[in-house]
C-alpha cells in the first residue's frame, strides 16, 4: 500500500455520506450522475451557514456604534463595495450582492480549508470552474442585454488597421474565452498547491518524528509548516480577493465594452 505517496492528495478525496440516486445516463453502470451528500457538500453548507450567521448575527443589534463583530462585517461590506465601485464604476454596484456573495463564499470556504482535517471546497476545479463560468455567463448575458451588438466591440480594439483585424479579433476572442479558465485555474491551483505543500511538510514532520534519532531534524519541516500555514491564510484571503476583483474587472467590460 503506497499510502505515504497518496497522503498529500488524500485530503482532496470526496467522501459520500449518503446517496440520493443516479440521474441521467442510460441506466447502465457508470453512466449518468450520481447525486450524493458528500464532505464537499457538508463544507459548502457549513460555508453558507457560517457566512450567513456571521453577517446576520453580527448586525443584529444594528448598533450605531458597532461592536467588534459588527465592525468586521461592516469592514467586509465597505471593502467589497469600494472594490466594485473602483473597478466597475457606479453602475457596477448593481452586481455588488453578486460579487459580495462570491467573495464571502470563497473566503469562508478557503478559511474552513485551513482547519486541519477539514475539506477545502475550492480545491476542486469543478467548483472554481462553476463559479468562473457563472461570472462569465453573467458578463456575456449582461453585456449583450445592455449593449446589444455593440458588446462585440470588445473584440475589436480601436485604432487597428483593417488588414490586421482578421488576426487580432480571433486573438481577442480566444483571450476573452480563456478568462473563465484562468479565473478558475488560479483559485484552484493556489488552494490545491498550498494544501499539498502543507501536507507534505506536515507528513515530513510526522515521518521524521517516527524515525527515532532523526526526530530532532523534524524541527526544520515543522518550522516550514508553521510559516507556510501563515502564508496559506494570506493566500486564502488574497485569492478570494483576487477572484472578486477579476469578477469586477470582467463586469466592467460588460458595462463599458468600448474600454
Amino acid at each position: 500500500m503506497s499510502e505515504k505517496a497518496i497522503e498529500p492528495i488524500h485530503q482532496f478525496n470526496i467522501v459520500k455520506y449518503f446517496t440520493f440516486g443516479n440521474f441521467g445516463g442510460n441506466g447502465s453502470e457508470g453512466s449518468g450522475m450520481e447525486i450524493a451528500f458528500t464532505n464537499s457538500a457538508l463544507f459548502m453548507l457549513l460555508t453558507l451557514l457560517a457566512a450567513s450567521a456571521f453577517l446576520i448575527l453580527s448586525t443584529r443589534g444594528r448598533g450605531l456604534v458597532p461592536g467588534r463583530m459588527q465592525l468586521m462585517a461592516e469592514m467586509v461590506y465597505e471593502f467589497v463595495a469600494n472594490m466594485v465601485r473602483s473597478s466597475a464604476g457606479t453602475e457596477g454596484m448593481r452586481f455588488f450582492p453578486f460579487v459580495f456573495t462570491l467573495f464571502m463564499f470563497i473566503l469562508v470556504a478557503n478559511f474552513f480549508g485551513m482547519v486541519p482535517y477539514f475539506f477545502t471546497v475550492t480545491s476542486h476545479i469543478i467548483v472554481t470552474a462553476a463559479l468562473a463560468v457563472l461570472v462569465f455567463l453573467v458578463v456575456v448575458i449582461y453585456g449583450f442585454m445592455r449593449n446589444g451588438a455593440k458588446f462585440l466591440k470588445l473584440f475589436v480594439p480601436p485604432g487597428i488597421p483593417w488588414f490586421i483585424i482578421w488576426l487580432v479579433v480571433p486573438i481577442e476572442i480566444i483571450s476573452f474565452l480563456s478568462r473563465p479558465l484562468s479565473h478558475s485555474l488560479r483559485l484552484w491551483g493556489n488552494m490545491l498547491a498550498g494544501h499539498i505543500v502543507l501536507k507534505v511538510f506536515g507528513g515530513m514532520v510526522v515521518a521524521l518524528l517516527g524515525a527515532g534519532a532523526w526526530g530532532v531534524v523534524a524541527i526544520l519541516p515543522f518550522g516550514m509548516a508553521v510559516a507556510l500555514t501563515g502564508l496559506e491564510f494570506l493566500v486564502a484571503a488574497l485569492q478570494a480577493f483576487v477572484f472578486a476583483v477579476l469578477t469586477c474587472v470582467y463586469l466592467n467590460d460588460a458595462i463599458h465594452p468600448g474600454h
Binding site: S178, R179, S182, L185, N190, L238
Partner: peptide
Amino acid sequence: GRAFRFAAEFVAA
C-alpha cells in the same frame, strides 16, 4: 500570486 496569475493567464489562453 502575481507569478501564478501570469502563468494561469498564459496557459488558459
